[in-house]
Amino acid sequence: MNSLLTSAVAGLSAGGAYAILGVCVVFTYRLVSVVKFTATALGAIGAFVMVIMTEMGYPLLPSVLVGILVGALASTAVGLITTIWFSGSSQSIKAAVTAALLVCIIAMGQRLTGGQQPRAFPDIVGGAGIQLAGVTITAASLVAIGFAVFLTVAAEQVLNRTRMGLQLRALSERPMAAELLGIPVRRLAIGVWAASGAMTSIALMLVAPLRSPDFGSLSLLVVPAFAAALIGSFKSFRAALVGGILIGVIEGLASVFVGLNQYRAAVPFLVILVVLLWSQRGAQWDEAR
């Protein structure tokens, strides 16, 4: 029992990472209706710019800021591609575009960062964190979870309470109508892309030190991020937050059961499936009428 608690707590640090990335994915999807396969790869660009600058001897803070900026710019570039050429395209075409871009970005990222060559990711948040059930939860993990909570609350407040939020919702639900209403559609969409790029960059800087520090692995964090977002059906920030942490905890728990753990990778998948089938039980028809 105790070892169960311990491994569940041990899963928290991964859970924080999944939660923050999941919230970022929901953010983009809700506002610009694009499934961004490139989400974490773009964030990884920002994180690697940061680490390369610190390796070259620049101080931490400017490196972090430049990294966030570059992440935002990279995301904006992808955003421009999707908004200019694919604004009216179907979801599967948009998915295909970002999937193709993911292949492209990973290849370039691996080339520029030297394949599997590990990088010395600095802890951008120092300090030991707290002890829980014999496990240290690092300050970075705590900040990651805190940041995820902050993003969740902030995104909900902005979307539901402010005029800009209203415009953003109009943008995602009826882009044509929003344009007719005089909402600066393209500018808002680009803003969303930039913001999500910056947020994902921060998220990856926080989680990278405890992950496999190479470009490919960090880019593929998009899969658990999607899983977290999926628990909220790509709509609910809170569900994505809770879902991300839950997936981390489940991964931690699965490592205890020796018989199960060979198939551990399938466990989050099954959990997501069950959650989804339950939450979507009312959805009998597609949206087309």
């Binding site: 979801q91 599967s92 998915a95 999607f226 977002a229 059906s233 997501i272 499936l273 089938l277 959805a283």
Partner: peptide
Amino acid sequence: LRGINLAIVTLG
């Protein structure tokens, strides 16, 4: 599940 949700389930 449809669209994006199905996509992510199959990805998983």
